[in-house]
Design a protein around this nucleic acid. Structure first.
Lengths: 198, 198
DNA sequence: CCCCTATACTCCCAACGGGAGTAAATTTCC
DNA sequence: GGAAATTTACTCCCGTTGGGAGTATAGGGG
């Protein structure tokens, strides 16, 4: 029964409003998974943990014959969240399989590498588009939490900047690799094009 | 007994040269952990898996009375790696606890938020510095694999660009937040400063 | 009425993190 | 030279997590 970052994420969402578990899982999928991804199957346990620790309450509702559980934060929950925000946290963690494939690219074909780079770019473009839609929603409607626009904007700008950086890097790498005869042949001055300006 | 991305990472390293398990773990820690982090305790199982699949061989050596195992890739291993490089891969995954704390910043103090941003910046500066050292090593000595500089350069440039982007974002966010009276008070036009140019 | 999707969950097993540990070799320090 | 610290070389443990599979009900559309 340990408070993990995931538990605090759920607690943070409960600080904004009351949520059913399904709604919590949906909100994770909509935005938070881009910087705190968690499998849906375990999200249903997190609010229960909060309840057992006195940081949230659970209310059983019935939708026809279907049960639903709605959770709300407690004052102790707000205090716990506030204290967590003041603690040092864990380092960022990135799992980027595409970049691993770039790293070992000379063990494969040039076409494979170009495909990998194109996929990386397309994924980043999709992420950028998704966050543009989130931003447009905030700009037009204020979103579900209009009094939090200022902090949401910090996060959205981060996501946008990151996606832009990946896209630009992929475009650059595609043009560089396009001029290689193959992945195993080292071009002249292999480091200059990457490190020339630093 | 399933081939995971981690298994392929080890296979990719074995494609470069023969390694002891400890050396594999050390190389993961030196560079690959930034984009494919894995706990050391499980890395020792991966080459064993490769051996059982015929993709690598294991040689037991003795250093005095201490045992060491050295692994080498097989031809089948090279083929498997080549084929994996041609497969579509999984999406990037990011766990960024600092950004989660930014997302819920209005539940805490302005000082906590500024501390979070400063920590994010410092971590990114350390990452940038680490990769600058890796790059300098490559530039001066050619590194352990001088015939792979061209692909290493692609990866290094990516890591540098990412770190730079995080640093710039954190610096920007620090200046923005510095002007807030507190985290709960929404400034005028809260979205413009983040989204004004897109 | 039927089909599909959404809502609302639970269960399972493999992959994994991180800590702890043992043992021998090597390096550093006094 | 000897002791302590660090490195090399692993194994084990337990909790966290991914992702797939599943059940059941509500709601919408043709």
């Amino acid at each position: 029964m340990k408070m993990t970052t995931t538990t605090y994420v759920i607690l943070g969402l409960l600080a904004l409003r009351r949520w059913s578990t399904y709604e919590l899982a949906k909100q994770m999928k909509r935005s938070i998974r881009y910087y705190w991804p968690r499998a849906e199957s375990h999200l249903y346990e997190e609010p229960k943990k909060l309840v057992s620790l006195g940081l949230a309450t659970a209310t059983r509702e019935d939708v026809g014959r279907r049960p639903r559980t709605v959770y709300e934060i407690t004052d102790a929950g707000r205090t716990a969240l506030r204290e967590w925000l003041a603690t040092p946290g864990s380092l960022p963690l990135v799992e980027f399989e595409g970049l691993v494939k770039v790293l070992f690219a000379e063990q494969g074909t040039k076409d494979d590498l170009l495909q990998t780079l194109a996929t990386i770019r397309a994924d980043a473009e999709a992420t950028r588009e998704h966050h543009a839609e989130l931003a447009a929603d905030l700009a037009v409607t204020g979103g579900p939490f209009p009094d939090r626009l200022h902090v949401n904007a910090l996060v959205l700008r981060f996501m946008w900047d990151q996606a832009e950086t990946v896209i630009r890097w992929a475009e650059w790498a595609e043009t560089v690799v396009a001029e290689w005869p193959d992945t195993a042949t080292q071009p002249a001055a292999p480091l200059d094009y990457a490190l020339g300006d630093r």
